[in-house]
Measured scan of single mutants.
Amino acid sequence: MTTFKLIINGKTLKGEITIEAVDAAEAEKIFKQYANDNGIDGEWTYDDATKTFTVTE
């Protein structure tokens, strides 16, 4: 398992979430479901060097 981080730069929600996932594809699926569940819709980026996803509304 690898640790992945999501940085949320939303209009109403900001913060960071860290999860353990098998790979970046699994982490992205989990993070996008979390964002969808919380009404966050924005532009996604991923930095493989730091294993960090960012979503900006």
Rank of each mutant, 00 (worst) to 15 (best):
M1I: 12
T18K: 05
N36Q: 13
T52W: 11
L13Q: 14
A27S: 05
D41R: 12
T54F: 01
W44K: 00
A21W: 03
E57M: 11
A24T: 11
E20K: 01
G42L: 04
G10A: 14
I7D: 06
E16V: 06
D47C: 05
D23W: 02
I30Y: 10
K11P: 04
E26W: 13
T50L: 13
K29D: 08
A25R: 04
I7H: 09
V55Q: 01
E43L: 13
F53C: 01
Y34D: 01
K5R: 10
F53W: 13
Y46T: 02
E28Y: 09
I17P: 02
Y34F: 07
E20W: 03
F4R: 00
K29S: 06
A21F: 03
I19S: 04
N36I: 10
G15C: 04
A25L: 14
A27R: 00
V55E: 00
D47P: 00
G10Y: 13
F31W: 12
V22S: 13
T12E: 03
L13D: 14
G15Y: 08
A21K: 08
Y34V: 11
E28R: 15
D47R: 11
M1N: 09
V22G: 06
A21P: 00
A25C: 04
I19K: 14
G42S: 06
E43Y: 07
K29Y: 09
F4M: 02
G42W: 11
F53E: 00
K11R: 03
L13E: 05
T45D: 04
D23I: 09
K32M: 04
F31N: 00
I17M: 02
D23V: 14
G39I: 13
F53P: 00
A35M: 03
F31L: 11
G39Q: 14
K29E: 02
I8S: 04
E57K: 08
T3F: 15
G42R: 01
V55M: 12
I30S: 06
I7V: 06
V55T: 10
T2E: 13
V22K: 04
W44S: 01
K51P: 01
L13Y: 12
K11L: 07
K29I: 06
T2R: 10
N9S: 06
Y34S: 13
V22H: 06
E28K: 06
K32S: 11
A21V: 08
I17L: 09
I17Y: 07
A21D: 06
